[in-house]
């Protein structure tokens, strides 16, 4: 994890692209919808999570692909570190990066759309749960597609459908938070999803990376 964060902090490749991308998306959405209307509380969460999902894809796509240069991935697999440990390290690094992008784009969203949640604690909770789910799916599929010849095409085809249930749950909860009402069933769904998919990913990462 430290290695990934270190190399990312040094190059800032994914970070810069992802931040720039999220600001551009938020800017474009302002022209697609009327940002001053009252309805912004209803569809604001959708905009926010779509921004996170697409910005996240930029971070996650590079997670394993960056190890391809100089056969670093083979070296990592051959090293005494177990595949699940390698995977969890990568996932934690991705989570930290994606969460940082989200923390940056949240005030941008609030500023552009003049929408602030009444309380921040529940919003951070759903951001942590939702982001972890996106990260775990994204990192696993990044590992799965890393050696494919159609990597750039296969990754979004596989990842986005898997992310849809998470995004729907996260959007519903965020809409409730922005409206100041109870968070609802979505939180339980996110917790269950996180637990199930983290377990599955840790179990299958060895199959995916080593065989």
């Amino acid at each position: 994890m430290a290695k990934d964060l270190h190399s990312e902090l040094r190059t800032k490749e994914a970070w810069n692209a992802s931040i720039a991308f999220s600001v551009v998306i938020l800017l474009l959405f302002a022209f697609a919808f009327d940002p001053s209307s009252d309805q912004i509380r209803e569809f604001g969460s959708g905009l926010l999570w779509m921004t996170y999902a697409f910005a996240g894809a930029l971070v996650l796509n590079r997670s394993f692909a960056r190890e391809l240069q100089n056969d670093c991935l083979d070296a990592l697999i051959a090293s005494p570190v177990s595949s699940p440990a390698l995977f969890v390290g990568k996932a934690l690094a991705n989570f930290a990066m994606l969460f940082a992008v989200e923390l940056f784009s949240l005030p941008v969203f609030g500023l552009f759309y003049n929408t602030w949640p009444p309380r921040f604690a529940p919003l951070f909770l759903v951001m942590v749960l939702g982001t972890w789910a996106l990260t775990i799916i994204g990192t696993l599929f990044s590992a799965l597609t890393v050696n494919l010849r159609l990597r750039e095409l296969m990754l979004p085809t596989l990842v986005y459908p898997m992310m849809i249930p998470v995004l729907i749950a996260a959007m519903t909860v965020t809409t409730n938070i922005l409206a100041g009402t109870a968070m609802g069933f979505g939180v339980r769904f996110l917790v269950a999803f996180d637990i199930i998919f983290t377990t599955l990913a840790v179990v299958f990462v060895d199959t995916v990376l080593v065989g």
């Binding site: 085809t157 599955l200 199959t207 065989g211």
Partner: peptide
């Protein structure tokens, strides 16, 4: 996506492994 993935991998054992993982994750949905 599972069927598209199968077409994207040439090596039979690798294809089988990847497809199996996607099938198991997809079945949760």
């Amino acid at each position: 996506g599972y069927l598209m993935l199968r077409r994207a991998v040439d090596e039979p054992n690798q294809r089988a492994r990847f497809a199996a993982v996607v099938s198991i994750l997809g079945s949760v949905n």
